[in-house]
């Protein structure tokens, strides 16, 4: 049986304009065979969650370099839960201090990839996590 390709939303929530990381990750995921939808800048949590549900995405990758990570991770995860879509995996990266990571994981983020993480590591994590999720669902 051929499995559906992994589908990922790469999102830039809020006002932060630093999109180099988001775009590099989006291209790397695409080159690894995933279907990638990049949202562009200035997205609200609502629009990101809506896109993810509409596109039947496996995961949402959030990039934040403005320090507003707690707010946006919190909102996106809350909205996913309220729409019964918490099966969509949330991960992210950006300028996020190590000390803040446990709090984001506690909120429900699957993984936080800090500066300097190789895209390979990120790809492997997504593949593994989506596979586990699909196994549980089937």
């Amino acid at each position: 049986m051929s499995e559906r390709r992994i589908r990922v939303i790469v999102a830039k929530p809020g006002l932060d304009g630093h999109d180099r990381g988001a775009k590099v990750v989006a291209r790397a995921l695409r080159d690894a065979g995933m279907e990638v939808i990049y949202t562009g800048l200035r997205q609200t949590p609502e629009s990101i969650v809506e896109t993810a549900i509409q596109e039947d995405a496996d995961a949402i990758g959030i990039s934040i370099l403005s320090g507003a990570h707690e707010h946006y991770f919190g909102e996106i995860i809350r909205l996913l839960k309220s729409k019964n879509a918490e099966d969509i995996i949330v991960f992210g990266g950006g300028v996020i201090p190590d000390g803040d990571i446990p709090r984001l994981l506690e909120m429900g983020a699957g993984a936080i990839f800090g500066p300097g993480t190789s895209t390979k590591k990120c790809i492997e994590w997504i593949e593994k996590t989506v596979e586990e999720k699909r196994r549980k669902e089937s």
Binding site: G14, L15, D16, T44, A68, H71
Partner: peptide, 10 residues
């Protein structure tokens, strides 16, 4: 509303 979470951050 768009300023939520961003005031005074960067």
């Amino acid at each position: 509303p768009m300023a939520r979470g961003e005031v005074g951050k960067v």
